[in-house]
Design a protein around this nucleic acid. Sequence first.
DNA 1: TCAATAGTTCAATATTTATAAACTATTGGA
DNA 2: TCCAATAGTTTATAAATATTGAACTATTGA
Lengths: 131, 131
Amino acid sequence: MRPLYHPSKEDISTEGILYALSDPIRAQIYSEISCSEEAPTCSNFLTLKNHKLPKSTLCQHFKILREAGLIRSERKGVELRNFSRCGDLKERFGDLIRAVLAAYGLKVGESVQNVPSEPKKKAVAEKSRPR
Amino acid sequence: MRPLYHPSKEDISTEGILYALSDPIRAQIYSEISCSEEAPTCSNFLTLKNHKLPKSTLCQHFKILREAGLIRSERKGVELRNFSRCGDLKERFGDLIRAVLAAYGLKVGESVQNVPSEPKKKAVAEKSRPR
DNA sequence: TCAATAGTTCAATATTTATAAACTATTGGA
DNA sequence: TCCAATAGTTTATAAATATTGAACTATTGA
């Protein structure tokens, strides 16, 4: 099985990000990953808003998020843990990602949040939220 | 021939806008429409960045922009003139549209531009730009 | 009424997406 | 070491979308 592809920071494109986030399911998945402390797994999303998703479909969504450069997937034992690639995204795409998720009414993790006009005060985290 | 459908302001959705603008060709078309004073026609885009587009393809792109609520098409004689639906978009989707076009490196018309932090000074228009 | 121009619709083809089923990978026992 | 369990990927194919040439509709001016 070929290793998971993650584009280099320079290869992350507006088009790819927009494509990935133009699907509301993927936007929601990305939102939750970006907010979560525990780096969720793919299977954590088998039901999303009372809606069941097949595993293979979910896997494709993750592939698209990963290959757009939005997330990084790391194997931890039998599962893959997914992180937002905040560091690689914030500078070039922070505004875009924030605006897209805001328009959907979704939350963004602190790491991408970082409003530049304010002098960076500690955000009030919202960790224990039902999923 | 059925009349052109324009969604009501309330029916404009994030998902529809993102879908429409996730195609870089449509994003560019919208950008030019939003910046232009003359309400361009469909045929104005038959060549875009040295790339020829078939008329039927272009017509579909316009239909998608129109049905997403981004533009309004009005018949003026033999042609259709296309306007950005600024008024309907600015409040709910201004930030989104601005961020998307900015990320693509495209311009946005003043009407959608309207940066809220600054006290609304007259923007320096850039009208005569090669297309 | 006809020709010219602009745009839409149709139909055929090509591309993309969704998903069940089969596969690979890792781990923790027996 | 081998097996079962769990997590995720790949493959095959069916369904949905996109692209585009060709035919059509609409408007205008001669």
